[in-house]
Design a binder for these strands. Structure first.
Length: 424
RNA sequence: GGGGAGAUACUCAAGCGGUCAACGAGGUCAGACUGUAAAUCUGAUGGCUUCGCCUUCGUAGGUUCGAAUCCUGCUCUCCCCA
């Protein structure tokens, strides 16, 4: 019935890790509801969450119905999968706050409005809040043996170090989610990263034992980076989708700087362009790697999808000023607001106007940019200092006309290290 | 409790009476090259009023014209024996 075969699509993207038997048949047979759970551990999703988001996006594009489950209940327990140690519990208020924020973000990526297969959002707290412990262990716990639960990797890997009963129970709680959605939302499939396989199959097992019916699991490969570090982390930590946590500029830069090898994986994982178009970009990249077609395409597409066209334009402008051939003139073209946005995150110091004409030592050292006069001398010897993108020498002096917007001076050591002086 | 070894700059690690702000390696920073990459090459890497001066070699004293280097106390670390 469907023009797009989801399983084929995922295979083409090298995303598919594993499915339970019969999954593809079910998806080809009829519109199928499938869900993925999101953990409310922070008040923003990060790009690590883009893989499950893509699964749902592609699911919807293939004509099926995505169900987004936010883990109001499971978030109170803590998933041991992939975790070396017990996690600290979040307060109920924190979880609620995080849930609301994530919800708003998810709405960007899926169509919650139109069509028979419009996306739906559920919160497992709704069906767990009135569940009492005795009911749970009688009605649910009875069906799954401890032996079965202990055999899961997520549990097994923690047996040495210890795992609380709380986290041990996690798979059962998640399994019950699946059962609940199976019964109430006709949800026949749970998807997730490959680290979720164990949890998901506990769900299918539970459904089989409680209803005698069959439910399905589908997992995606985890995205790994060629240098072994974790995907979605930059030096400053996670790359978040929230512009307040990771500015669109930094977000754009993250994609732009992905290693070639990883970019090849990412374009298939994340791009919503036509297959032929993606293959063209891959070809381009192979022929002329230095143009970095893959990184550019990715950075543009992802910045637009997560932020907006305007944010992309600004990010590009900022990048151009920071890294491109742009010069003093481009810098002067910025108004005060743009200037501060481009150099968002660059350390600033407010200094009094008298300093301006008091020489380099005053500007670079007293302002706190360079740690000592020796450092300043060294930098001058290296010819590594610039003011307003123009290299300066030993006896440079500044005047009022050097001030950007009558107020700022942009100091620079080498290529990457910036500092803003704010003359007030 | 007895015996031994050690503590040096961001890290590792030389130095064992003057030529030591202290070899070397890693890291970091800069310059060249480049794809805002990797690799490579070059330089820098305590502070200052820089052809000189000042403060640093666990800590406090001492010997000496002169100590990171020798002596003593203290603190800490490691090893061996009981």
């Amino acid at each position: 019935m469907n023009a797009v075969n989801l399983v084929e699509e995922l295979k083409w993207r090298n995303m598919l890790q594993d499915t339970t038997p019969g999954t593809e048949d079910q998806l080809q047979k009829e519109m199928t509801s499938a869900y993925i759970g999101f953990d409310p551990t922070a008040d923003s999703l990060h790009i690590g969450n883009m893989v499950p988001i893509m699964l749902l996006t592609l699911l919807q594009k293939a004509g099926h119905k995505p169900i987004v489950l936010v883990g109001g209940a499971t978030g109170r327990v803590g998933d041991p999968s992939g975790k070396k140690a017990e996690r600290k519990l979040l307060s109920y208020q924190e979880i609620q706050h995080n849930l609301n924020c994530q919800k708003a973000q998810l709405e960007r990526f899926l169509d919650f409005e139109n069509g028979e297969n419009k996306a739906e959002l559920v919160n497992n707290y709704d069906w767990f809040k009135d569940m009492n412990f005795l009911d749970f262990i009688r009605d649910v716990g009875k069906h799954i043996s401890v032996n079965y639960m202990m055999a899961k990797d997520s549990v097994k890997s923690r047996l040495e170090q210890g795992i609380s009963f709380t986290e041990f129970s996690y798979q059962l709680v998640q399994g019950y989610d699946f059962y609940h959605l199976f019964q109430n939302n006709n949800c026949l499939l749970q998807m997730g990263g490959s680290d979720q396989w164990g949890n998901i199959t506990t769900g299918t097992e539970l459904i089989r034992r409680m209803t005698g019916k069959e439910a399905h699991a589908l997992t995606a490969q985890l995205l790994t980076k060629s240098d072994g570090s974790k995907f979605g982390k930059s030096e400053g930590g996670n790359v978040w989708l929230d512009a307040k946590r990771t500015s669109p500029y930094k977000f754009y830069q993250y994609w732009l700087n992905i290693a070639d090898e990883d970019a090849q994986k990412c374009i298939r994982f994340f791009s919503l362009r036509e297959h032929s178009e993606i293959e063209d970009i891959e070809k381009q990249h192979a022929e002329a790697p230095h143009t970095r077609s893959l990184q550019n395409a990715l950075a543009e597409e992802m910045t637009i999808r997560v932020h907006s066209e305007e944010d992309l334009a600004r990010a590009k402008q900022a990048s151009n000023i920071l890294f491109g051939k742009s010069t003093a003139e481009d810098l002067r073209a910025l108004d005060s607001e743009q200037f501060l946005e481009v150099f968002d995150g660059v350390p600033q110091s407010s200094v009094s106007k008298e300093l301006l004409t008091e020489g380099l030592e005053a500007l670079f050292v007293q302002s706190g940019f360079l740690p000592s006069n020796s450092e300043l001398r060294r930098a001058l010897k290296e010819n590594s200092l610039s003011i307003n993108k123009t290299k300066i020498g030993d006896n440079h002096t500044c005047t009022d006309s050097d001030l950007l917007n009558g107020q700022y001076l942009l100091l620079q050591r080498g290529k990457k290290s910036y500092f803003i002086l704010n003359f007030s």
